[in-house]
Design a protein around this nucleic acid. Sequence first.
DNA 1: TTGTACGCGTTATCAT
DNA 2: ATGATAACGCGTACAA
Lengths: 342, 342
Amino acid sequence: MSQEKIITIYDIAEKLSLSPSTISRGLQNHAAVNAVTKKKIFDTANEMGYRFNTFARNLRSRKTNTIGVIVPRLNSYFISAMLAGIEKELNGSGYNMLISQSLELQEKEAEYAETMMHNRVDGLIVALAANTTSLDHFQPFFKHHIPLLFADRGIAGNEYTKVVIDNFRAGYEAAFHLAEQGCTRIAHITGNTIRDVYSERRDGYQQALKDKGLSFDESLVFETDLTEISTMKVMNRILKMEVLPDGLFVSNDFCAAIGLKTLKQAGLRIPEDIAIVGFNNDATSRITEPALSTVNYPGQEMGEVVARRLINQLNASNPSEPETLVLKSELIVRSSSLKGGV
Amino acid sequence: MSQEKIITIYDIAEKLSLSPSTISRGLQNHAAVNAVTKKKIFDTANEMGYRFNTFARNLRSRKTNTIGVIVPRLNSYFISAMLAGIEKELNGSGYNMLISQSLELQEKEAEYAETMMHNRVDGLIVALAANTTSLDHFQPFFKHHIPLLFADRGIAGNEYTKVVIDNFRAGYEAAFHLAEQGCTRIAHITGNTIRDVYSERRDGYQQALKDKGLSFDESLVFETDLTEISTMKVMNRILKMEVLPDGLFVSNDFCAAIGLKTLKQAGLRIPEDIAIVGFNNDATSRITEPALSTVNYPGQEMGEVVARRLINQLNASNPSEPETLVLKSELIVRSSSLKGGV
DNA sequence: TTGTACGCGTTATCAT
DNA sequence: ATGATAACGCGTACAA
């Protein structure tokens, strides 16, 4: 009990008067090892408190069975759902998961990418930080042909494999729906439009206005960091407007919920005075009163899909082409945007 | 670009006509290496696309700089806040973080503990699964003197180091507050009471009733898995009672929010007919109307503290005694429990 | 079916 | 300040 010696296959070999290779094979359930011998090996291993050394194996096999994951932040409803999905798939397939959060900073993202590299991850899953503009920090991965997949937040173009939703369409549908409900002045709160998830939603919103013959008013679009504080500030600005908007599309449920509550407290009726649509279908969206219309955004599924795609790629014999997997998202209409009329 | 050879210190050594040892030392910024040589080494390393192999180092040094983290689930507001705290501290100190989720199952927890063992984590942080009753699966860690710290959900007693809040007191305060507000029939919804976090809150609640001279009614305590569905079921049972409760203490903000909304929809006024207190101070608690009274539960801080404690323990020369770190939690009174009286 | 011998990439030790 | 050598623990080609 006191100070445990570290047991290796050599120790087992010695005790059983066998060779280390036989032990190694036995522990791997190698076909060419006598069943009796195998049993003896396993028993002795347990008895001696043997635990095999993944590092020695990794060193030897040049594989780590570890996948790196870099996300903007861990404490987000959407991200944690995605991580849950990734974890499920990876661990189900015998992979480990090394996680870092970039805190929305390209600088940290780069730093962690390097760490992942040093840790010889077999593959990398990334959701880009808000301010990431260049992928230079991922060059080593491309160079060494280590699969790098983007989850949700990738970069425009078809150069890389990514799993996303059709943000343009989602934004379009949200705004279109508000217009259908009779809204003519639809405001939009979005995140950092460096990230295509946000710019595309905004573009979709803009296109919907156009298609519905509504004028686009730049001053009704608010680019923020999607925090509670920023949202409150935007609300104050909105409430001071001479002509209030009659619709609001927010790229994030939590902020939409904050907005909804703030507007109500200011005496406005939701949806009669201002109809609201959020984004993500967070648990929060079912808590607000009225319940929040939102875009269902399949976080867990996205995680599962990206992880499975990565695993397939790792198992594939020939290199796979970059691919963009688009998951289904859909507008969920609840009371916050349902004005009586059509 | 095409197929990159993996560069080792031998390659650099050869190119510079130096010995591998010098390269190794140079790359580590060893004092006893000529500055000029060092520079040459670094430059050549970059130029050749060298990336050092953590596994070889780990194998040699018998340390991995990796900490394992096993949590019940990733997609929980509280857990992800805690993880964010852990990640911050660990990565700040040069540690990596290997994460698994037990999905509240002891069986999976055991499986992952083994994986962590094989990966030779330097330490382990665990929040126990709902149904974990035995710690047998962690025996290897104890045996090999690998620090195992519990975060939030540990096990009773002083045998292990853990970071927690005073759940008894928190539960006591919540129930006491409701009683102070004039509630005399206070219901309680709790999680699996195998976990002390839940049983202690319930005990605190019970003690508060006693101290306020209220009778304890077993049928007003609902042990659930704290999901939305279970909460709805409990609400239905409550609404069917002949005498409704006039207070409700829920061990989880999300469920409290669901409950609050359901009761309101059934025509009850909050807090006049039923006053409610939740737990966690989730973002959700500020969204409900009325805003939810709750117990502030410092998830991120808890993560930071447990990680820091672990790092200290790893750096300490002498073994450290088990210790229970109790973080401050406090009742936050908002409108959902503030009856006019008193 | 089992054993021998070497390599994986690094670092520690001892020597120069 | 630098070099030579062994060792970390395992896997595998080849031999027996």
